[in-house]
Computed example of a mutant assay.
Amino acid sequence: MDPNHDFLHLLSATAQGDRLAFADLYRQTAGKLYAISLQMLRRRDLAEEAVQEAFVRIWHNAGDYQHEKGTVLTWMISIVRYRALDMLRATKSRRETGDEGLEEALDEQSPEQELYEQRDRVRIDRCMDRLDEGQRQAIEMAYFRGLTHMEVCDQMETPLGTIKTWIRRGLERLKRCLES
């Protein structure tokens, strides 16, 4: 099944005001958009804010999507990337004008937050190390670097079905590992 066809259907319904279609589109794409935002912003709260604002724009601009310019997911990713870039630019601007409030917020975390993030990273790294090489590479490319499944296929020179299977099975193993 072609995910772009499904996304196009959901986006079209969203453009008509269908909240259930929008919720389904969110459910299917939010994780990937969050991963891209987190990769750029390096803070969970800012990444969540960027994704939330991007989905507000997606809701309001669903009717503006033009399929000739790329897939629905590519369009959505560009919205998230632009929002994250706007946030980074705002940080840089504040730094240059001496208003360091957001910059300090970006740089400072409570010791508890840092400890929890370090623990999470260690647990995730430990579980990632337990995956098969193909699963680990595919998940890193898709979720940590923000590549599409097709881009992962190209990078790994592996068929799409294999990539999807590796990612699905790898995520299942990661979930079991992290829950134990």
Rank of each mutant, 00 (worst) to 15 (best):
S78L: 10
M150K: 09
P159E: 14
H60W: 05
F144A: 04
R136T: 00
D86Q: 02
D120Y: 11
A30F: 01
V51A: 07
E48F: 08
F144Q: 08
V56R: 03
S37K: 02
G98R: 11
K164F: 00
S93M: 08
L33R: 00
E96C: 02
C177E: 04
T29G: 07
V80C: 14
L41K: 10
T165R: 12
R44Q: 13
L38W: 11
R89E: 14
A15E: 04
E100A: 02
L73Y: 03
Q109C: 12
W166A: 01
A142D: 04
D64R: 13
Q66E: 15
R44L: 00
R83Y: 03
Y82T: 13
Q52T: 11
N61V: 00
V56L: 14
I163H: 01
V51S: 04
D2W: 05
Q118R: 11
A84Q: 03
V72P: 01
L46A: 12
M156P: 05
C177F: 04
D18M: 04
P159R: 12
E68Q: 12
L33D: 00
E151R: 10
E112N: 01
H9A: 11
L38G: 01
D129S: 12
M76S: 07
G170R: 04
R44C: 01
V72W: 04
A62W: 07
R136H: 06
L11A: 05
E112R: 11
L115I: 05
R83L: 00
K175R: 14
L106T: 01
I79P: 03
F55H: 05
Y143M: 12
V122G: 00
L174R: 08
A23N: 09
R44M: 04
T14S: 15
T71A: 08
D154Y: 07
V51G: 04
M1W: 09
T74Q: 07
H149A: 03
G70Y: 06
L8G: 13
E151L: 06
L85S: 10
P111D: 13
A23H: 10
R136K: 15
G63A: 07
L178V: 06
W75Q: 10
T97V: 07
S93Q: 15
L171G: 06
L174T: 08
E140M: 08
P3T: 00
I79C: 02
G17C: 01
D99N: 15
K92W: 09
I58G: 04
Q39E: 10
V122K: 14
D129I: 00
S78W: 10
L8I: 00
D18W: 05
T97M: 06
R173K: 15
R119D: 13
S93L: 11
I163E: 02
E108S: 11
A54I: 05
K92L: 11
D120H: 10
D154V: 05
T162C: 06
D129Y: 00
E49W: 02
R173D: 13
R123N: 11
E49D: 15
